[in-house]
C-alpha cells in the first residue's frame, strides 16, 4: 500500500493500511492514520483508548482482550465502534499503531 506521508516523511504501510514498523508511531502518525479510518478528529476519548492500547502493546506485544479494553477504559463496545467505525481490532489498533490482530476475528 502507498506510504503514509507525515510532515513530509514517508511511513510505510502494509496492504491493510497498518504500520509496517510499529516503532514509527507518534501522535502525528496517529492523526494521519485516523484520516484513513474515517475518523476526522481524535478527541480525548479517542486518545484514552489509543493510549491504553499502546501501553498494553508495549507490555505484552499484542492487543488486549476487547472486554478488558472496554472495562479498563470505561468505554463499552458501542462507544468504541462510535469512536472507531471499523471496530476495536481494526480501526483502534490501526490508529494506535499496533499490529493487525489476525485469526478468527
Amino acid at each position: 500500500m502507498a506510504d503514509l506521508i507525515v510532515n513530509g516523511q514517508a511511513i510505510p504501510l502494509d496492504e491493510d493500511g497498518f504500520l509496517e514498523d510499529t516503532e514509527l508511531w507518534n501522535e502525528e502518525v496517529a492523526k494521519a492514520l485516523a484520516l484513513t479510518e474515517d475518523v476526522p478528529e481524535l478527541t480525548e476519548e479517542h486518545w484514552k483508548v489509543i493510549n491504553y492500547l499502546r501501553d498494553y502493546f508495549a507490555k505484552f506485544g499484542v492487543a488486549p482482550m476487547v472486554r478488558k479494553l472496554c472495562k479498563d477504559t470505561g468505554c463499552d463496545l458501542k462507544t468504541i465502534y462510535e469512536l472507531f467505525p471499523s471496530g476495536p481490532a481494526k480501526g483502534a489498533c490501526k490508529i494506535a499503531g499496533l499490529l493487525k490482530p489476525t485469526g478468527c476475528v
Binding site: 505484552f60 506485544g61 499484542v62 488486549p64 499490529l99 490482530p101 489476525t102 485469526g103 476475528v105
Partner: peptide
Amino acid sequence: GNNMGTPLPA
C-alpha cells in the same frame, strides 16, 4: 501456539 499470536504473558 495460537493463531492470534498472543504470547503467554498476555
